[in-house]
């Protein structure tokens, strides 16, 4: 219990003192996570929408792979990306290993299936009658998608929150492809792992509080958007 209190106090002290290191780590974490979720949403939403609305051969197989991908262990994603980005690997010439971009790639890969899968199941629940009604109202394909996007707001936001949750919780891949380099690729989760391995449980705990507060702020605001009251 003492450790918990110590950790909380330390977290507050670290933040109050404007500790440069902690600010750098926290900002980087936010930047990397938000960029990852942005890109996986950008690609995942349309993919999920198309998968949820259309019927084609091989759709079930594709869905199986996506559902499998939802449980993709981050270290596996990390390993693949590492092999890809190695100097001797196919993308080696871009020197991307041990950069924030590499972490973004890993987080993109682990969050994409979640966004695609959950968006897809949300869109599958849309009734044929509603689709007919929207079409009959004179909507073009694009207009239909926008209407449906708004209509499935709750499910879509749930997908984004779940994806973001995966990203925030992720550490194995970030460690592997980022390298936990101070001031460069050290994010909150990797520093927590590092501090624990050093035996600095108080700092680790402090970092965990900061991470959870940041996660609370971000998911909280998305949840707020999702649950915004229907004006009665």
């Amino acid at each position: 219990m003492n450790l918990l209190v110590d950790g909380l106090l330390k977290a507050l002290a670290m933040l109050r003192s404007g500790d440069n290191e902690i600010i750098t780590i926290a900002t980087l974490t936010a930047k990397v996570s938000l960029t990852s979720i942005f890109f996986s949403t950008l690609l995942g939403l349309p993919l999920g929408m198309v998968l949820g609305l259309s019927k084609f051969k091989g759709r079930r197989l594709l869905l199986t792979f996506i559902n499998l991908g939802m449980g993709l262990p981050p270290v596996v994603a990390g390993l693949w990306i590492t092999l890809l980005l190695w100097r001797s690997g196919p993308l080696g010439q871009f020197s991307l290993l041990y950069t924030p971009t590499a972490i973004i790639m890993a987080q993109f890969i682990v969050s994409l299936p979640i966004i695609v899968g959950l968006t897809c199941s949300t869109f599958q629940q849309i009734s044929d009658k509603l689709l007919l009604q929207i079409k009959a109202l004179g909507a073009t394909r694009t207009q239909t998608l926008f209407i449906l996007l708004k209509e499935t707001k709750i499910g879509i936001f749930a997908a984004i929150i779940a994806g973001l949750g995966r990203i925030i919780a992720e550490v194995g891949a970030a460690m592997m492809v980022g390298g936990n380099i101070q001031g460069d690729t050290r994010i909150l989760t990797t520093s927590i792992v590092m501090e624990v391995s050093k035996g600095n449980f108080d700092i680790a705990l402090a970092l965990s509080f900061i991470l959870m507060s940041a996660a609370f702020l971000i998911t909280g605001s998305i949840t707020f958007l999702q649950q915004r009251k229907r004006n009665a």
Binding site: K129, A136, L137, I147, K150
Partner: peptide, 16 residues
């Protein structure tokens, strides 16, 4: 297509 309009048994209103 926009010259026709349809209303079904279910009102199928949208959130708004």
């Amino acid at each position: 297509r926009r010259k026709f309009s349809i209303a079904l048994q279910q009102s199928l209103l949208l959130d708004g």
